[in-house]
């Protein structure tokens, strides 16, 4: 079954980092920017603007996030089973209660999509793996992922990958690729 996912079109990204800031806000305890930045354990963004370089040598922003691979190498590497597929269908979601911060998942992720931070959902641990969860909480409320909502240029879209291909966009770019087994 196909799931809606965040489709990335890096050629449209201007590097404003709104997605990152709104992502962190959406994963904060209070969900409001004005209060989120005062929380004792700060939420962290799960999308990152990486710096790429075009053939002319010009720096280009690249919105980088989890692709929710299936099968997911991070999940195969996760020893305590903290990366779960049963929290939100079609999404690989880190369960902070199970994560031991060992680092194996990030070793397995080809996309630099997993980072480690002190996490407000597991405040007793020094670090926890933090990655995109497809905003499943927001989706349950009928909202689209926070990064997509924040994106002004269309570099992030929320939709079905196959429809996106049909649209002729052709460049799934680093969109929602799955790792080939």
């Amino acid at each position: 079954m196909q799931h809606k996912t965040v489709i990335v079109r890096p050629e449209l990204c201007v590097g404003c980092m709104q997605c990152a800031i709104r992502c962190a806000q959406a994963h904060s305890a209070t969900k409001e920017l004005a209060t989120a930045v005062f929380e004792p354990v700060l939420a962290k963004p799960r999308i990152h603007i990486g710096v790429g370089v075009n053939p002319q040598g010009v720096l280009k922003p690249f919105p980088n996030k989890c692709r929710h691979c299936d099968p997911a190498p991070c999940q195969e590497a996760c020893m305590p089973g903290a990366i779960r597929s049963d929290i939100a269908e079609g999404s690989k979601v880190v369960d902070p209660a199970l994560c031991i911060g060992c680092g194996m998942c990030a070793m397995a992720c080809p996309y630099y999509a997993i980072r480690y931070h002190h996490d407000l959902h597991a405040p007793e641990r020094t670090i926890t793996a933090i990655k995109c969860d497809n905003c499943h909480d927001r989706q349950k409320k009928g909202q689209i992922p926070a990064c997509v909502e924040a994106c002004k240029t269309g570099a992030l879209e929320f939709g079905y990958v196959n429809e996106h291909i049909k649209k002729g966009a052709g460049r799934l770019a680093n969109a929602a690729w799955s790792m080939q087994s």
């Binding site: 050629e11 710096v51 790429g52 690249f62 980088n64 080809p110 680093n174 690729w177």
Partner: peptide, 13 residues
């Protein structure tokens, strides 16, 4: 903060 290596990010070519 560099973009990821994996994938055919066109501008890496």
């Amino acid at each position: 903060n560099a973009a990821p290596l994996a994938g055919n990010t066109p501008w890496y070519k």
